[in-house]
Write a protein that binds this DNA or RNA. Sequence first.
DNA 1: GGCCCTTTGAGG
DNA 2: CCTCAAAGGGCC
Length: 334
Amino acid sequence: MSSPDAPLTPGHRPRLSLTAHMAVPRCFPRGPVTRFYWGPEGRDPFNTGHTEGGPPGKGDPAADWPSSSPDSGIDLSPTDPACPKLEFSFPPEVDVVKPQEKTKGRVSFSKEQLFLMHERFQRQRYLSPMQIQEMATSLGLTYKQVKTWFQNRRMKMKKINKEGTVKNGTDTLQCDSLTSTRSEPAPGFYPGYSTHGRNSAIGPMVNQFQTYVGHPNAPYVLVPEESSPWWNAAGGHPNLDSHFNKPYQVEPSATQEMDFWQNVLVMDGQSQETGYNFPQHWNFPGASGLLYPNKLLQNYPPPLQKYPPSQSYSLLNYPHIDRAPTNWDDSEEL
DNA sequence: GGCCCTTTGAGG
DNA sequence: CCTCAAAGGGCC
């Protein structure tokens, strides 16, 4: 596996009411996905033009954790001694599901299992049979459990979106959009998804939310919350679109250190706040997301890190990276 | 296999 | 009680 990206979502609609613009068509992959990377000011971690290739070196954890550019002056690598690091570990599990548990009663998956499935779901709503099997194996779950989980998750997603659409417009700060002109879903934007749901098994969705791991120079990744309107129909961000292509300067206060991780388990409402949210003074209207160290999973469980203070960072957007969905079969991912 | 609805049971 | 996640079952 490889790919960090996202944590999740709120079991309960976040108060930030992020579901507003999600008039998602029946399935997700949204258009040209855009991602935001936190990187040293003004730097294009990817040397623009580089398009994401295949899955990152699968199974080479940490191997390519960059030392994030020597010249950048900041080395955010978790392996860098200079980078404050704290121990991180999932809380001891007591509820780890046993693979062949007979269905007597309802078992609860472990946080780790949930995390990994959520993570996967974040970028890939449909798994091919092979992928299901692989994931099941790697998680110690049964094929059926994984399949069921994804199905339930899609249903939940759908429900949330529906609710969000309904109350859309009324109360709640539906992501005080700076640019909410595009809320119309564009079917054409869903490359990997077969609208004829029936045969989807043969065409595993190409994950639009490709791994971040392949971009070694992007030390941190800003991951949107799953049910937030981070991705609008055009694949942009309703609140950050205006910042596209012009690196937005973000200046953490001199004294501020941001904890990236207190807890990675952002599965549900409970742990939702465990991620890191922008401090208000960063002033990204309505934008709340979670900051993840790049290659989250490669270093899984991810290290707790701190963002060096007194630095200037840019919120970069590299839409080109996703414009051309890759076709690699990520079956080897997990 | 997916969708959809329902049931079950754990946790609040 | 209620909510919600895991699973069952029917249908396509």
